[in-house]
Structure formats: structure tokens, C-alpha cells
Amino acid sequence: MSEQQTHIDPEQEVEPSSFKLIGTLSFAGFVSGLILVSVYLFTKPIIEQNKADAMREAIFTVLPGTTTFKTLVLENGELTEADKAGEESVFLGLNDQNAMTGFAISGKESGFQDIIGVLYGYDAVNRRIIGYQVLDCKETPGLGDKIFKNTAFVANFTALAVEPEIVLVKNGAKQQPNEVDAITGATISSKTVVKLLNRSMEKWKAPIDRYLTANPSPVNP
């Protein structure tokens, strides 16, 4: 029986035809493609749902009191309401009385090892950052990951003034409302977060202000 045949004598072996070789590889590729497409189609909606859930949860965390939110997309420098979040979008949080709780804005910046992705809550009326959550972080475990594990560092972002700009200071030296206490031993990761917030604010402050001037109704902090 062929199952017991564990060795084929090389001399007895006939060189297989090119057709057989091409046929085998094409068949393997075809079956593999079929399997992969099925798995992809099956898991895609679940993966997207997971991401949407994670984003939802993060929005509720960075904007305390939020119960619903609107998605706003940046088009030609103006914010307009949209059903789905795109590359350039922010979320307007609303509480149960339909009053604005703030804007949830995501930003990315290269950290010590890889891209750090952050979602933060921005109170456009008082010009302060009121909440902060790290979405993506592959920083050094034990050091760089303190940007979300260290409660003292995270506490910097509960009422952080964004004007004139956010400034990183040595740990314990924070005095002004626009200053952030750095994490000892994770300076680059701390710097990255501050840089990310400043750059993101620079980009979004003006469109958000214009949006609020055009739509004054939700402003009721």
C-alpha cells in the first residue's frame, strides 16, 4: 500500500512534466485563494464591528458624560456631518440632554518604536483637553507603555490647556495649565504624545471653531 512507502528511490523517479508542475501550483494557489477569500469575507464584518466598538468605547471614555456622538468629516477645510468616519474625521460628543460634551479627536505620531495612536477629548469652549486614551502603542513594555498605564501621566490630560501650546516639563515641575509632567525613563514617548497633541490641535482647532460658529446650537456646556 502506498501509505507504507516512505522512501522513493531517486533513480526510479521520473522527472514530472512541466504541465504537472504548473498544474499543481495553480491548483494549490486556487484552493488557497478560495479558502482565504472565504475566511476574509467571514471575519471582515466581525473585525470591523470590533474596531467600531473599541472606538465607541474610547469616545465615551475621553468625553465624560457622553451618551451619543456625531461623526464629522473634514472636507475642503470645513467639518460636515457624515454617517461613517473617514480618514479625516472627529466625533462630536453629546450628553443625554443633547448638549455638547466635546470633540473626540484621534491622532498618530511616530514614537520610540512604532506609531503611537491616541484619541483625546477636546473641550472647544474652554480650550482644554479633557480626556485621553491610547489606541495603538507598541512602545517598550515597562517604560513607554506608561503613557497609558501610568495614572499620574494620564491625569495630565484631564484639564490641559492647549493654548498657547502644550509644553512638556520634567516630572513634578508642572505649574501652568498647559504643562505636562513627563514620565521619567520614557522621555521620547512622553514627547511624542505632546507633539501629537500640539500638531493635531493645530490642524483641528480652526475647523472646529468654524463649525461651532456655523452650528451654535449644540454649544451648551
Binding site: 523517479e13 514530472p16 508542475l21 499543481t24 494557489g29 482565504l36 475566511v39 471575519t43 473585525i47 470590533n50
Partner: peptide, 26 residues
């Protein structure tokens, strides 16, 4: 066939890995 065995193995392995990748992500 022997001459294309490594290629075929890699296709088989890659299929399983990609399936695991999607499944874990989901």
C-alpha cells in the same frame, strides 16, 4: 511533484497562517 514541493508547502502554510490571522483578529 518533488521539484515544486517547497513552494506548495509554503502556499499551504501561508493559507493556514492567514486564516489564523483573520480569525484571531475577529
Amino acid at each position: 511533484p518533488k521539484p515544486v514541493r517547497i513552494t506548495t508547502y509554503i502556499v499551504i502554510i501561508a493559507t493556514f497562517v492567514t486564516a489564523v490571522d483573520f480569525t484571531l483578529e475577529a
